[in-house]
């Protein structure tokens, strides 16, 4: 009986320790997510040009990070979070492409919209910004968004993670799930393509 009581006491102490750890971990996660959430929303929004959908993707990424990677070291959270988010953006484009193909099959879509970015670019602004808000947005940023959106997927990811989120090459490689060499190549190509495209606006 005393052995059982001892085991119960150990379980209770461990329970309390686990509770304290959970609270600390929750506080750290809250701080981390509060730091990244706004930039993550903008990055997702630039990727898919739809704020509501971008919001859903960010929330999914938050939930997946908390559920699956909360126990990982804090330094790993940022690349893991963006990896989840980028996967979500890619899946979103894949689903959209399949939907477009089905629409074409049933004769409801145009037959020449192979590039899903063109299709999205032609849609009305679903972010629901008012004209006043539109005016507030800097023209340079609008040009940049359009140019970034037109980049190939991997170049766009490398550029946004390196430039907007400020990841180094190693962190970007983890977030993109590729080698550091690939990150350098994608990033360099992205910057040159953007400079060529935005030259007249940005020089």
């Amino acid at each position: 009986m005393s052995a059982c009581a001892g085991v119960f006491a150990v379980s209770c102490i461990r329970e309390q320790a686990t509770g304290a750890e959970t609270l600390q971990r929750e506080s750290q996660l809250n701080q981390f997510l509060a730091e990244v959430e706004r930039r993550a929303l903008r990055i997702a929004e630039i990727g898919i040009r739809d704020r509501d959908e971008a919001m859903d993707l960010v929330q999914d990424a938050m939930i997946k990070l908390v559920k699956n990677y909360a126990a990982r070291p804090q330094g790993e959270w940022a690349p893991l979070f963006y990896r989840i988010l980028q996967n979500g953006v890619r899946d979103w484009h894949r689903r959209r492409k399949v939907r477009n193909h089905i629409m074409v099959w049933f004769g409801r879509g145009s037959s020449n919209d192979d590039d899903d970015y063109d299709f999205v670019a032609q849609a009305p602004d679903p972010a629901g910004r008012s004209p006043d808000e539109e005016l507030q947005i800097d023209e340079a940023m609008q040009q940049l968004e359009i140019a970034v959106r037109a980049l190939p997927t991997r170049q766009r990811e490398a550029f946004m993670l390196r430039t907007f989120e400020g990841f180094d090459v190693a962190g970007t490689a983890v977030a993109m799930g590729c080698s550091a060499g690939s990150v350098k190549t994608h990033y360099s190509r992205a910057v040159h393509a953007l400079r060529d495209k935005l030259g007249e606006h940005w020089q």
Partner: peptide, 17 residues
């Protein structure tokens, strides 16, 4: 947008509890 982000964050942290 900030309010929605705040709610999304708390919904995610609920998973931890």
């Amino acid at each position: 947008a900030l309010s929605r982000l705040n709610r999304a964050r708390h919904a995610a942290l609920d998973e931890l509890r």
